[in-house]
Computed example of a mutant assay.
Amino acid sequence: MSRDLFAPIVTDEQAHHLFQRVRTGAPHAAARRLMNEVFADFHDVDKSFVREFQTGGFSARVFELALFAYLREQGLIPDRSHAAPDFAVLGDTPVAIEVTTTNPAQGSEPDDLEYAPLLHDDLPEADKAFVFQLGKALRRKLTHRDASGRAYWEKEHIRDVPFVIAVGAFHNQNAQMHVVGTVAEYLYGQRDVFTYDTTGKLTITADRVERHESGGKSIPSGLFQMPEAKNLAGVLFSNAHTMGMFNRIGAESGYGPDGVAICRVGTAYNPDANASEPRPFAYVVGDRPPGEQETFAEGLHLFINPWANRKLSPQALPGIPFANFTHGRLVTMVPNSFQPFTSKTFVVEHPQAQQIARYQQLLFLRKLPSEGAER
Rank of each mutant, 00 (worst) to 15 (best):
P110E: 03
R208Y: 09
T203S: 13
S81I: 00
F68P: 09
E156P: 00
Q352V: 10
A316G: 11
E154K: 00
N239W: 00
Q173I: 11
G291K: 12
A84F: 08
Y196T: 08
T295A: 04
A275Y: 01
G372A: 04
D121F: 03
F63Y: 13
A297L: 02
L142K: 03
F246N: 09
A66W: 05
F58I: 05
V161T: 11
R23L: 02
P280K: 01
P227C: 07
V331C: 07
L312N: 01
E98L: 02
P314H: 07
T326S: 14
R21Y: 12
V62F: 04
R72S: 13
M177Y: 07
D44V: 09
N239K: 01
I219W: 07
A26Q: 13
D197F: 06
L223T: 06
A26H: 11
D146K: 03
T11Q: 04
T326I: 15
P351Q: 04
F42Y: 15
M177I: 12
D192C: 10
F281Q: 01
E277H: 11
Q20T: 14
M245Q: 13
F341I: 13
S276P: 01
R139W: 06
A169C: 09
T332C: 08
R150W: 00
P27G: 06
Q354D: 14
M177G: 15
E277C: 00
D192S: 14
G189F: 09
Q361E: 11
F303I: 01
H43Y: 07
R211M: 12
K344E: 03
S343W: 13
T345P: 00
F194R: 10
G200H: 10
R21D: 12
H212F: 15
L113K: 15
M35R: 07
E374Y: 10
D258E: 15
R358G: 02
G372M: 03
G222N: 09
R51W: 07
D12S: 13
I9E: 13
P280I: 08
E252N: 04
A30V: 09
V284L: 01
A88C: 11
L90K: 10
T199S: 14
S59C: 14
P110G: 06
V62Y: 02
S276L: 05
N103P: 00
H327G: 08
G244R: 06
